[in-house]
Design a protein around this nucleic acid. Structure first.
Lengths: 341, 341
DNA sequence: ATTAAATACACAAACGTTTGTGTGATATTT
DNA sequence: AAATATCACACAAACGTTTGTGTATTTAAT
């Protein structure tokens, strides 16, 4: 544990002032060539490392982006954070990460921590139970820009990245319809999520396009837990208007739903077919893969969120930012090659 | 964007000194009751938030733990980081996260960033290609403790958490042997990884226990990519001493290996059986699940790494820490219930 | 030769907080 | 009543860096 080298120390050893050392290191023109090389040589020799905490403090900027998401174990989010991180790193930013685990209290506490750490910005995908948004207001008032992605609150005055679930669901529906399915069910997510609302909207849109009537019993909601998915699947399959195909909220839901269907002695892809959302790698290894999965481009969503953030960061803090940046990403239905290999 | 409230500002408004405000806020005994309540009331009213960057700087402590891992998309690591984060949060620490993507240069750069950010400690699972450890030496010299986990360099003078792969592999071998398998192959990972070396050791141990001879052709290495796994699988299955069971480096390798075997018209779990490592949830949904998977308790590994870190952080920085903490976690072979449902 | 401009540096303040020390005013002890 | 202890606060320094301003010395321009 050697003594940590500071600018002051270098200054003392060379008998010059700290300000000159600072300027020499940053190649300021007002420093003479000899002094410059002297300083730079000694700095390297002593293994000088600038104390970022001092710089952060002095510059009122931490080059840190807070990222809060529900859970990294969902591949969607781990992929999204990669998008954020990659772009962040390219721009000298680092990621301060926190998982809410869909716990509102923890989310609030994390926002608070981020605020105290003086992150330069916050990118967040909210917990599925979050309905009070005051903690975001608080951090915004503090001058820290907030960008939402994927799990976005239903508010007007926010920046966000959002995948066009409506069109994705319509695509999914039409895909199944063209395969000849007449009765198409849907296992949806928690009703308070915009993601769920838009799936319903996309579903209905497809019906309207085809001049079909809406049967509410074909859509069931669940809280995404395995148990609830099982229940939802059974409910759908026992429905009087029994679907021959189901649109699952995402790939995880699909896996459980297919399992449930198999347990009911149904042949997957024969008696009952599935389409889901996310298009995770697991689709290619699953016992019961979906016919297709709607790719929501998680990496791109993360990257886009960071793009918005960089724009906001470039802005003058005092500008009146009455405008909000919203990026809509078009999802893509990926038909899987399920030639069982 | 209101003016940010500082201690100085509060002091000015109350006509007292900043030091008194500071002490009042931290409930120092030398401050009178009236002043204390006055300060605390005004602080709340003005929405005062302590500037952590200033505190970090002043206290030479950031309450931030750097975590570098190869890739969050591997569930093993996303689970491990959850273990780290949970324990960190309980102790007022936050996680600064970075992914190396198995790129040595990026790993080095991340270590450097962490160093500059003055993280209080670094927890890392190294890239699979890392063979030069000088960047870790550098950050250690800087007084920042480093704890390794799972992907650990083969060095003596380090703190680490490590899963007893040797015993795990022996367990896996014996499990297959008791099922009657005579010729058991192994698809191993990159040879420079300790994880790979120990798998070989565990494999050999099992042989010795059973008084069997070692056939080197039954172990093939791969770089974990899908393509390489396919190649390795084919090599094993075309071997003159053809295995009836294969121990895969991990569940991802298993998925590709099973796919490769299926492509070769082999019946999984009949012509060829698998055991793997990690025991990811995907095992329960896979088209070709392994008979068993060795759980390496990733969450626990992460948590243990953070435990070591907390111990190191509690130590006096100037103590001579010639002792190194090593935690070995016993893995557990989980036999899967593959009654196809 | 005189003045102006450029060079190369030093000085000092500031960022917001914590903490050691100093100091009057009460309160307590003898 | 004098000496001492306690209280409640103010003052100042420090953490390491950046940056605006001041100032000798040198160089260039007239």
């Amino acid at each position: 544990m050697e003594k940590v080298i500071t600018i002051k120390e270098i200054a003392k050893r060379l008998n010059i002032s700290p300000s000159s050392v600072s300027r020499a290191l940053s190649n300021h023109k007002s420093i003479g060539l000899k002094t410059k090389t002297d300083v730079q040589r000694l700095a390297k020799e002593l293994n000088y490392e600038p104390n970022q905490t001092a710089i952060f403090f002095q510059q009122r900027k931490t080059f840190t982006i807070g990222v809060i998401l529900p859970s990294l174990s969902e591949e969607f989010f781990s992929s999204a954070i990669s998008g954020i991180e990659d772009l962040a790193n390219e721009n000298k930013y680092t990621v301060l990460m926190g998982q809410s685990h869909d716990d509102v209290e923890r989310e609030k506490q994390l926002v608070d921590t981020m605020k105290n750490h003086r992150v330069d910005g916050l990118i967040i995908s909210i917990s599925k139970n979050t309905e009070d948004y005051s903690h975001f207001e608080a951090i915004k008032k503090f001058g820290i820009p907030v960008v939402f992605f994927d799990r976005v609150p239903d508010l007007k005055d926010i920046h966000y990245v959002w995948c066009n679930i409506i069109s994705g669901t319509t695509q999914a529906y039409n895909f199944l319809k063209e395969l000849g399915h007449q009765s198409i069910g849907m296992i949806n997510g928690p009703t308070n999520l915009l993601a769920s609302k838009e799936r319903v909207e996309g579903y209905k849109n497809a019906l309207i396009q085809s001049n079909l009537n809406f049967d509410p019993s074909l859509i069931v909601s669940c809280n995404l837990s395995t148990k609830d998915v099982f229940k939802a699947t059974e409910e759908l399959l026992n429905n009087t208007n029994k679907p021959t195909a189901i649109i699952a909220f995402n790939d995880y839901v699909l896996l459980d739903a297919a399992k449930a269907a198999a347990k009911m002695k149904l042949k997957i892809n024969k008696d009952i077919s599935f389409v889901s959302f996310a298009h995770l790698p697991i689709c290619h290894y699953a016992a019961h893969p979906p016919l297709a999965s709607v790719d929501q481009f998680s990496y791109k969503q993360g990257k886009s969120a960071m793009e918005i953030m960089l724009q906001l960061l470039a802005k003058d803090r005092n500008e009146n930012n009455e405008s909000y940046i919203k990026i809509i990403i078009e999802p893509k239905l990926i038909v899987l090659d399920n030639t069982i290999d």
